[in-house]
Design a protein around this nucleic acid. Structure first.
Lengths: 122, 122
DNA sequence: GCACTTTGCTAACTAGAGCAAGCATAATGG
DNA sequence: CCATTATGCTTGCTCTAGTTAGCAAAGTGC
C-alpha cells in the first residue's frame, strides 16, 4: 500500500539511530523511555519494521523532535510543513462545531453541497 | 496513552461515517477512493479496527479533512494546542469560501444562525 | 585468568490490521 | 412477478507489527 516502503523505512531508521546516538542513549534506554521493546527499536533503526502512528508519537516525545518530522521521515506525511492552504473548509467547520446537532450538521452540509455542486440531485 | 482504545475508536468511527455520508459517498466509493477494502472501512466506522498511520493519511485525503484531525479523533495525537492557531468557525469558513456567491453565503449564514440561536426572531 | 554488565542483534511467537469472497436486505426496472 | 444492482455487513484468511527469551561480542573490575 505504501509507495516505497524500503526507502522510507531506511530513511526513518537512519534518522532514528542518529537522533538516539546524539542523545547518548542506548537501545534499551530509549526503548524503555519510549515504552517499546529494545529488539523492536533495533529493527526500526535498521528499517526492518514499519512503526505505527502511536509508536512514532512516542518516539518523537522520547527524542524531543516534532511528530511531524518523524511522519515525514517515515513517508507518511508529505513534505508540506504547514498545510492549511488546503482550504479551511466549510465542511470541516460545520463538522467541528459543538453547537450543532448531527442532524443540523447534515442539513447544513446538504445546503452547502447544493451550492458548491449545482449539478447534484436536489 | 491508548488506555481506552474503544472510546477512541468509536469516536473516530463515528466521525468517519459522518464525514463519508456528508460527502454522499457509499462505503465502496470511499474505500476505492482511499485505496482500502470496503469491509475494512465498514469495520473502521464501527470502531472494530484501529487504522494505521498510512490508512489515516489516505482517509484524510479522501475526505478532504486534515490528517491531524483524524489523528486526534483516533486518540493518537493530543489536542495539539501548539499550532492550534485558530478554531475554524463556521462563520469564518463560509465567509472565506471562494466557491460561494455572496447571496449563497448570506443564505447559509442565516441557516446556521437559526440553528445556533433558535430563540432568534424568524 | 574469570564473573558481571552492557551493547546490539536473532529467533520464535502472538495479536490484530487489512484483505477477498460472499451474504442479506432494499431499491430499481423489465 | 423476477433479475439486477447498490447498500452495509460477516466470515475466514494472510501477513506483519510488536513481543519475550536468549545470544555473541565488547567492555569493566577482581
Amino acid at each position: 500500500m505504501s509507495r516505497n516502503p524500503l526507502n522510507d523505512l531506511a530513511g526513518l531508521g537512519d534518522y532514528l539511530r542518529e537522533q538516539r546516538q546524539s542523545h547518548s542513549l542506548s537501545l534499551r534506554q530509549l526503548s524503555e523511555l519510549v515504552g517499546i521493546s529494545n529488539p523492536y527499536l533495533s529493527q526500526l533503526e535498521r528499517g526492518l519494521k514499519r512503526p505505527s502512528a502511536e509508536i512514532l508519537q512516542q518516539l518523537a516525545k522520547g527524542l524531543e523532535v516534532s511528530a511531524e518530522t518523524l511522519y515525514v521521515k517515515a513517508g507518511i506525511l508529505d513534505e508540506h510543513p504547514v498545510r492549511h492552504d488546503e482550504t479551511p473548509t466549510v465542511r470541516d467547520a460545520i463538522a467541528a462545531d459543538p453547537d450543532l446537532t448531527d442532524r443540523q450538521k447534515a442539513t447544513l452540509m446538504d445546503v452547502y453541497e447544493s451550492f458548491v455542486r449545482p449539478d447534484a440531485p436536489p
